[in-house]
Design a protein around this nucleic acid. Structure first.
Lengths: 256, 256
DNA sequence: AATAAAATTCCATATTGCGGAATTTATTAA
DNA sequence: TTAATAAATTCCGCAATATGGAATTTTATT
């Protein structure tokens, strides 16, 4: 063994897969080479192996690689074993029925949130998001919520590296504004998205904590401002969202 | 290189992960050893490596291993890149709105189906299933649908290895009965679940084909018999389900 | 407390993975 | 079309890595 039970080739594979996942788009060998910094020959060989094991898929026409079907299998299995997920689903369904609006459960990954579960409203107008979708932390209720409760050092690091692209006129686009917003969120116990991601779209989110008092996710209710322009909606929803978030937190071991 | 770009340690890791995914339950080192047939020391070392890379999680109290968070990340990313998934979602939503009932998208894995996407109805009564849930082929509309359209050899192999546990009095529990049912499905173009999985639960499913005319998935509408006991419901739903399945098939390249 | 079983560590050896260089294939420019 | 450039793929000897039997420690069972 080199060191402490490392498996070099596996590490490289995970580095490649992570690179591909981070990148979202299909990637060519050269792109992976540039982004990972590994030797091209090595990557080539590992990608062949990964492909034959179905962890990666290769589009022969374009010579592009993408994450493969076996990862979907592993992933959805892991997801359905995840306490957070199984516990949240019925509570999310209840929340959706109470509010009539779309409910999401998301976790933080880098400077984005990833949707792990989503219960859509029955309104025809529905945003084109789904399990696996990612959104920037600064313009989502869930992103801001998580940011407000993770440890400050990590939050600062994320904020320092944020792109802050202005999705709408309301998008928070500076670290100082965002910090002020996080302070407000901590005071209220919930976060609001006031058309900061997309015009006409609002949401209210609350944090989910684990047994050791750390945020592990956020739950939100998202709705169209066209149907509910009144600002009182935020507070009204927040009560329900917070109740749901607490229920989930407790169920996964939070005692605070 | 050993042979044609194999990476032995990676292969073993995938074998371990597959074993764990197949098993559903958390596993102990010894269990993995027995099920994979690999040497215990090797598995131990690889599990350590997998754990430190977050592909696997280790419950130190019980010394059990389970699929880790990084696999969720890879999996949901792969899922959201999957044409089948992204194309299906809006069509499933439409189908749910048309019928008012829960809509599922599933693929075949071994002798089970796995739910890849699910749009729940707003009825309070909702079955406890979610993305990643697995069900036996013989007692689900989607399982039977896929079985009816995959190549016969594979279907026979699956049927030969089926457990056929009798979930209800209606559960199909012999190969010959199942074969007769598959024939009926091929004639109708859709499959029905007549309380074969759970008393009070019915569903109607139709197959989804790809560019090379192969079934890749099935879509279904599932509902409570308490609300709709009438058998005409099957045919009524089948029209809508078939329409949706064709729409998805075409969108992913089917031309038949 | 004694026994059995499972988990973990150790280490010498064979095997595997590595990556530079060469070759082939695709892409772009002329 | 041809030439030039860039990317993908193959080759192979060497060094580093993974292997697994045996020993040790920890945990479960009697």
């Amino acid at each position: 063994m080199g060191q402490k039970d490392q498996v070099k080739s596996l590490e490289k594979c995970v580095r490649i897969l992570t690179c591909m996942a981070d990148n979202r788009e299909n990637m060519t060998l050269n792109e992976v080479t540039q982004k990972t910094g590994l030797k091209k020959t090595t990557i080539y060989r590992l990608l062949q192996a990964l492909t034959s094991l179905q962890l990666v898929e290769k589009k022969t026409k374009t010579r592009q690689y993408l994450l493969g079907p076996k990862l979907i299998y592993f992933g959805v299995t892991a997801l359905s074993n995840l306490d957070l997920h199984t516990i949240s689903l019925p509570i999310m369904t209840k929340l959706k029925n109470e509010t009539g609006e779309t409910v999401n459960l998301s976790i933080l990954k880098g400077s984005e949130i990833i949707i792990l579960a989503r219960i859509q409203s029955d309104h025809l107008f529905n945003v084109n998001l789904s399990v696996g979708s990612r959104l920037p932390v600064n313009c989502t209720s869930q992103g801001k919520t998580i940011l407000a409760y993770i440890d400050e050092e990590k939050a600062n690091w994320i904020m320092a590296n944020l792109m802050f692209d202005k999705r709408t006129e309301n998008t928070i686009s500076s670290v100082s504004d965002l910090k002020r917003e996080l302070e407000r969120i901590r005071q209220n116990g919930y976060a609001v998205n006031n058309e900061e991601l997309e015009k006409g779209l609002s949401a209210v989110a609350a944090p989910i904590f684990n047994h050791s008092d750390q945020v592990v996710a956020a739950i939100n209710v998202s709705y169209s401002r066209a149907r509910h322009p009144e600002p009182e909606m935020y507070e009204r929803l927040s009560k329900k969202v917070i109740r749901a978030s607490k229920e989930i937190s407790r169920a996964i071991g939070y005692s605070g």
